[in-house]
Design a protein around this nucleic acid. Structure first.
Lengths: 224, 224
DNA sequence: AGCCATACTGACCGATCGGTCAACACAATC
DNA sequence: GATTGTGTTGACCGATCGGTCAGTATGGCT
């Protein structure tokens, strides 16, 4: 049985699909689902339009495949968080991870943003299901942090939204940011400066103090 | 000379144009420039497609008119700010004004967001011109605040971006926010809660203390 | 050589795109 | 009643949309 059944490892197929996905991500990110055309995607991929449909089936299938790929990239974020964790470490990591993710996958982030702007027609159930659970569980832990005096008694949902919005801004609004700064793109120094700023303001703003040098027990650190 | 020359006060014309602008703002906000169709706008306005073009000339003219209308709404923001101003009052007003603007013009805000996502093809010169000057002048004043010890020595550009992003998030990502919160829309209480949270975190995070009851002189308030 | 499954694509489909235009409706003026 | 300017719209234009399909090219197997 030397036959490769289907959808299995095929180097040529995988290369073609990767090319298409990259081209499509770019076009969808710029113009949204309705505004993107298969012809534009095909041109950017250097393939005939019919080839796109041969591999992807339909415009919608290609689009949801890109959405799913992007969603799976968030999965590692804020994964290991417990009531005993140190808020400073966790939130600091959260901010930096989000900044890095946005820079690593700018097209995917913009694609996601366009989908939300359009009213999330393809992500409604994901938002009201998986993601909602994700937020609720993290929020519950953060509330325990507040009860333990590790941070101010802020609404953790607003805190999560704050970190999302402030980090994503630099990828989704990159055209605005670079237009205002007068650069073509953000430099490494810019990104580091922004990360330091966000850590400073958000952590200080939530009353999170620097972690105790001994991360052994959950020694309460009184603040305010 | 009873003849109304043109483009002057004409109640019927103004009513028609207002209807068209409202419908177009909605469609453009949802699908972006490319994704929006004149037919969809016409349907939402309850007018034949040819009528849209009679009043607006072209799809592009209609779009830039909406953009300009939205830009003019930002003008009042952070207008009266001086090195002698109290940071707490000014930044607090800034945050609340931005929140209110986003709630008052949700369609316009999303339209703007879609334009930036697409790479700001129609707003490039505005971003690199007017808006850039706007940010630079405000940033200079904030740097003076820092020098006076009124707030931490943070980069004021990142601070402005932080306030923009964190407030706009609730209008442009309303689909995500309400999906996660399990509501159709944000309530008045939500908005007040969010405003209080953002004021708390951002002001505290920047080391801005509550204003002195006497707003007469710039008495330095040591913090840190 | 013959065969067959997969890869690939030019040509075409009906629908819709932004935009034009001629025809018509209607009120005000002479 | 005839004229004129503005408002209004159905019908139509070439271009492009997402998608289908028949046909060709290709490489591994017997």
């Amino acid at each position: 049985m030397t036959v490769i059944s289907a959808t299995q490892e095929n180097p040529s197929r995988e290369r073609a699909e990767a090319t298409i996905l990259a081209a499509a991500e770019e076009v969808f990110a710029q113009h949204g689902y309705r505004g993107a055309s298969l012809q534009a995607i095909a041109d950017r991929a250097g393939l005939p339009k019919a080839n796109i449909l041969y591999y992807m089936g339909s415009k919608q299938a290609l689009y949801v495949r890109l959405l799913n790929r992007m969603m799976s990239r968030w999965n590692a974020v804020l994964e290991d968080i417990t009531p005993e964790s140190d808020p400073h470490t966790v939130l600091s990591d959260f901010i930096r991870t989000k900044m890095v993710l946005g820079q690593r996958y700018p097209k995917g982030s913009k694609l996601f943003a366009a989908e939300i702007l359009a009213g999330a027609p393809f992500l409604n159930e994901y938002l009201a299901g998986e993601l909602r659970e994700w937020v609720a569980s993290r929020a519950a832990i953060m509330r325990e942090w507040s009860a333990q005096g590790k941070m101010d008694a802020v609404d953790p949902r607003w805190l999560i939204f704050l970190i999302w919005s402030s980090t994503q801004h630099y990828t989704e609004y990159s055209a605005q940011v670079s237009g205002i700064l007068g650069r073509d793109a953000l430099t490494e120094d810019d990104l580091e400066s922004i990360s330091v700023f966000l850590e400073h303001v958000i952590l200080k703003g939530c009353g999170v103090s620097v972690p105790a040098p001994k991360p052994s027990a959950n020694a309460p650190q009184v603040k305010k």
